[in-house]
Amino acid sequence: MSNTTKNTETTSSRRNWLKNVGMLGAASMAPSLVMAGSNHEKKHSSLYNNQPIRLIVSTYSYWHFEPEKYPIEKVIENAAKIGFDGVEILHRQMENESVEYMNKLKRMAFERGLALPFLSIHQNFVEPDAAKRKEHIEHTLRCIKLAVQMGIPAIRMNTGSWKGKRPADYYEHGRKEPTEGYTDQDAIKWVIESMKECLEEAEKAGVILCLENHWGLSSNIDYLEEIHNALSSSPAMGLNLDTGNFVGEPYDDFERLIGHADIIQAKTYYGGGKYYDKDMDYDRFAKIMRDANFTGYVSLEMEGDEDPETAVPKSYKLLREAFAV
């Protein structure tokens, strides 16, 4: 079977899936669902869009896990005033998981003309204990239900990382040593098995699970691609690329994976990075995205120490200029 035939069949399968799930309204906000079958099959080739890239802002940009949470309601209000197209919700930033609260966020966004395309959650499948992996699977399944309630079509997923203290140079290589008696290949197997279980429910719900290069095991781009390719036959499998989470210079690895990407998170570091600093050439990122015909959302994650009330508008201006047509 030719690559063209495989791509056509995969595209048809994904479109039929979206038609049959009960979340067409949410799914219509999502980027392309045409998944590549190999690194050489580009999923965006038939999705040309001459509009500017849609910019959203992660609620994380306003709250870096301090004791007092920055209200998501206020992020939604800020996003509308600044000019963003939507808001990414950080699960840990939610005040609660009540239907009343989630409906409030959904209505606030709708009334301001904002999309809610992405829910970022935390889980760790790099766990030798099968019972603990199961806990993280159950957490993910619960979050899929939350996404459905809020009309969110995609969820950020992590591979996770080995236990233990982060080495001083962790953000230079992203690596932790495996737990004694285990290897990274064991961890890859656990991630694939756990993701498969989550994807079964995600397919039914019409929610895309976007695996991110989020340090830990996924710092190794070969590992990330191996996991992605093992799961790419699922119409609910996706990929999220974080510009700031690549080891070393990001551009070659970003270009290598952009053909698989469903959404992108773009880091800025005004006031100095919370965990690390990186110089970001967003004109260069934008060219790579245009060349790959990426048409999905770009979500700002402002991870600097500057007051987000000033740093987020600066970041918006930077990204909006870079990603304009």
Rank of each mutant, 00 (worst) to 15 (best):
L119M: 05
T59N: 08
G259R: 05
E226I: 03
E200L: 13
D252P: 05
Y276T: 09
E200T: 13
P235G: 02
R175S: 04
K145M: 06
G151Q: 07
N213Y: 08
N213K: 07
E9P: 00
A261S: 08
N229V: 10
I144T: 01
P153L: 13
N7W: 12
N124R: 07
S46T: 12
F110R: 13
A311W: 08
N20S: 14
R284C: 03
V34R: 09
A109W: 03
D85S: 15
Y223F: 15
N16Q: 11
A205G: 05
E301M: 05
A36S: 15
E193D: 15
E97Y: 15
Y282R: 03
Y70V: 02
Y101R: 02
H136I: 07
P117I: 06
T8N: 13
E197C: 04
K314E: 01
T310F: 13
Y270R: 04
M35L: 12
G174K: 01
D252L: 14
N293R: 10
F285I: 04
K163G: 08
S120V: 02
F65S: 09
G206F: 11
F254L: 06
Y62I: 05
V34F: 07
R320N: 07
V312Q: 02
D305Y: 14
G86A: 05
D283V: 13
P313D: 06
S46M: 11
T243C: 09
H40F: 14
A324N: 14
N20P: 02
E127A: 06
K81S: 03
L224M: 12
N78Y: 05
C210D: 13
E111T: 02
I263L: 12
Q149E: 15
E212N: 01
A26P: 01
E309S: 14
T11K: 11
I221L: 14
L300S: 00
H91Q: 14
A202F: 06
N293C: 10
A322Y: 03
E138W: 09
K287F: 11
E77A: 13
E255Y: 02
A79K: 00
M157F: 06
T179G: 09
I227L: 01
Y276G: 04
K317H: 12
I258L: 04
I188M: 05
N229T: 15
M157L: 03
R256Q: 02
G37C: 11
H122L: 14
L105C: 00
D129A: 09
E203R: 08
T8Q: 15
W63L: 03
K189G: 05
V75E: 00
L239G: 01
V207W: 04
W17M: 00
R166S: 10
E249W: 07
P31F: 12
N3L: 15
N39F: 13
D169N: 14
K106L: 01
L114K: 00
N158V: 09
L24P: 04
E226V: 02
N213L: 12
E73V: 03
E200A: 15
M195E: 07
L318H: 06
D281F: 10
I192F: 06
F125Y: 15
P31Y: 14
D186R: 06
F118K: 00
